[in-house]
Design a binder for these strands. Structure first.
Lengths: 147, 147
DNA sequence: CACAATCATTTGATTAGTCAAGTTATAAAA
DNA sequence: TTTTATAACTTGACTAATCAAATGATTGTG
């Protein structure tokens, strides 16, 4: 036992870091009455609106069921409206959401950025970004190994 | 709007990648009737057993409530036993869990490793690991910015 | 027109987690 | 010895997600 590869160490680091920074982000966004997941969804809508639930689900890598439930919550809070439009539902932000995002977006951006700016110089950040981009893109076309 | 920093791009990449690879790992571990979270917890127990719930919660960065619920599920499945021992509960793996882990561990390790081995050479992996280690360690002593 | 096909969304059952209030077990003080 | 403190754990109410089966909406075809 206890036979770690470098890859498995990276994997664990990534999991622990994203888990932790996600919690911190939730804490941070409390001042806007938002969770990280909600902020993420609202951001995507703000960039791509109007769009359908399927399109949105793909952008935030969540299943259709997941996006359906999330949108019910966001609708109840008055952040979005959905209109049955042909056979799909079209999603748009409300004025309330636009106003909150305008405030929250720059702050959340600065918050995210601080995780890296504080410890890595620009070159190191570029390296990290390109390495992770390669890893991510590769994983997207990866197949499950046979049993 | 749309004013991305490099840091925010890295953040998003990390979130999407861990989210996706976590789902793939869940898929992969189905052959052992385990989820990624369960595998993670069982691994930590196997390394540090016997240990208390508090200690375990800290190792997997989950709250005490979270670990309590997870251990109830693992106990119902017969993977662990808890003994009230002084004022704490001491956790140990059952023979069933030990047997499954012995099989699953090398396969899961290889699975995790393949995300990186396929696209990064050894030097790049070392770089990625050191960069992420710095970022992670920094985040652990980070404080929430004032309101 | 009615009926099947198909795409988009919802929903029930479950896992996984959070926070904060409530229990339980042990130790110490009155 | 009854109370009080405290550390460890559980629990209720909730967010967030998954899968797979059910429901809606629209378009063809017989």
């Amino acid at each position: 036992m206890r036979n770690n590869t470098i890859g498995s160490l990276i994997w664990l680091r990534l999991m622990r870091f994203t888990n932790q920074s996600n919690q911190m982000s939730n804490d941070f966004l409390k001042r806007f009455d938002l969770t990280t997941a909600q902020f993420d969804v609202l951001m995507q809508i703000s960039v791509y609106q109007p769009l359908t639930q399927m399109e949105l689900a793909e952008k935030v890598t969540v299943t259709q069921g997941g996006i359906s439930r999330m949108l019910v919550r966001l609708e109840n809070e008055g952040y979005i409206v959905r209109k049955q439009d042909w056979k799909t539902k079209t999603i748009r932000l409300t004025a309330k959401a636009e106003a909150i995002l305008e405030q929250a977006m720059p702050e959340q951006l600065a918050f995210q950025t601080s995780f890296f700016d504080d410890v890595l110089n620009h070159e190191e950040q570029t390296t990290l970004y390109t390495l992770m981009t390669r890893v991510h893109k590769h994983s997207q076309k990866k197949e499950l190994p046979p049993e």
